[in-house]
């Protein structure tokens, strides 16, 4: 059964006709052409689909779209502002923290969610927060470096 829902994505309001139990990920990618969030496992296990809902990390592949009505959704596309890229994105670029890049959306969005909550998390907190974001290419070292940089840990080098 389709219903017309009003979603706020990247500060824009959209009205879409959709079955309310459709996952947010499908709506973002298929209806709104926002392909930043990736489809990895579809079971909430890998984190590739992560978006922000009211600034909190959310796995879009397990979230029925109806659950975000009335909430603010931000995708990777919405991080940058007129002034430029988000500092987390800048850090990932500076650290060249990608191999194939499939996991990057989830990594960047999760770090953003963490920093929204605590602008200066410890390295340990960063590692814990990213524990359930999977990277199949083994880019973990670079990714963590980028995350530390975004969190203001300037000392490069050892990262574990």
């Amino acid at each position: 059964m389709t219903r017309t829902l009003t979603l706020t994505v990247n500060r824009q309001s959209h009205r879409i006709a959709v079955a309310p139990e459709t996952t947010l990920l499908h709506v973002l990618r298929n209806d709104l052409a926002l392909n930043g969030p990736k489809y990895g496992c579809g079971l909430g296990e890998c984190g590739a689909c992560t978006v922000l809902v009211d600034g909190l990390a959310a796995r879009a592949c397990v979230l029925p779209v109806a659950a975000v009505v009335g909430h603010e959704v931000t995708t990777l596309e919405g991080l940058a502002t007129a002034e430029g890229l988000d500092p987390v994105q800048v850090a990932f670029i500076e650290e060249q923290a990608a191999q194939c890049g499939y996991c990057l959306n989830g990594m960047i969005m999760s770090v953003r969610a963490l920093l929204n909550h605590d602008p200066h998390p410890s390295k340990q907190a960063i590692r814990a927060a990213l524990e359930h974001n999977l990277c199949r290419c083994g880019t973990h070292v670079e990714i963590l470096k980028a995350a530390y940089r975004a969190a203001g840990h300037d000392d490069e080098g050892e990262c574990v």
Partner: peptide, 17 residues
């Protein structure tokens, strides 16, 4: 750890899901 922990363990990452 693979299937459940991302939602059922509190890692300190503030999460909507």
């Amino acid at each position: 750890d693979g299937a459940c922990a991302s939602c059922h363990v509190d890692t300190g990452l503030p999460s909507f899901t």
